[in-house]
């Protein structure tokens, strides 16, 4: 028993030492143009998804998430703040989508999240909507995804989530009409 514990402690020390040497040696490729190996990728993705699911659990999706008002408000914001990374109909790549790692998912594609594939399941749709809200509000560490909650209140974020639900089905023309910022829509007095 004693020798077992001893070898366990030794193994632990060697691993720590090795990790320390690796860390300080500078061998790790930090560049965004060197993808993670599949093990690291799986680890990070699982960490992210488990964390977001847990954190978003308690959120309540607004009843009017499908309203035209939310679509309009969210569309204009999406075009201003998100399309540069997450693209828009008719644009399949740009500097950010190509250069960022992890790369920003193309949110105009229906398979970029679980919503469409599991559309039959209301529960899953709800979970996917909450997940999007949480990610937009809090961002994702060590990725290009900023936390928008610092500067934008919850209703504004729900509006963008509402818009995201319809984005994959929009043509370039529909997208342009929905996202154009109408001066008149901001209640300049009549």
């Amino acid at each position: 028993m004693k020798s077992y514990l001893k070898s366990l402690a030794l193994t632990g020390t060697v691993i720590l030492l090795g990790a320390g040497i690796y860390l300080y040696s500078g061998v790790y490729p930090m560049g965004a143009d060197t993808p993670h190996n599949s093990a690291t990728y799986w680890l990070l993705e699982t960490l992210r998804e488990r964390s977001v699911v847990r954190a978003a659990e308690e959120l309540v999706v607004p009843a009017d998430i499908k309203s035209a008002e939310r679509l309009l408000a969210g569309g204009a914001d999406y075009n201003d703040m998100c399309a540069s990374c997450h693209l828009k109909p008719g644009v399949t790549e740009n500097d950010f989508s190509l250069g960022l790692y992890p790369s920003p998912p193309n949110l105009t594609l229906s398979d970029s999240d679980e919503i469409q594939t599991q559309a039959a399941d209301v529960e899953a749709t709800n979970a996917a909507i909450k997940r999007q809200f949480w990610i937009i509000k809090h961002g994702i560490k060590a990725s290009g995804m900023p936390a928008w909650g610092a500067n934008h209140d919850d209703p504004r974020i729900w509006n963008m989530v509402a818009f995201l639900q319809r984005l994959p089905e929009l043509s370039a023309v529909q997208y342009q009409i929905l996202t154009a910022r109408n001066k008149a829509s901001k209640g300049h007095g009549h």
């Binding site: 035209a68 309009l72 319809r166 089905e169 009409i177 929905l178």
Partner: peptide, 20 residues
Amino acid sequence: PMMQAMMKQCMQAMHEGDHD
């Protein structure tokens, strides 16, 4: 709602064109 949103957007644009 997507259709309604587009209509709304265009009604406003039209109205705005009247005086701006």
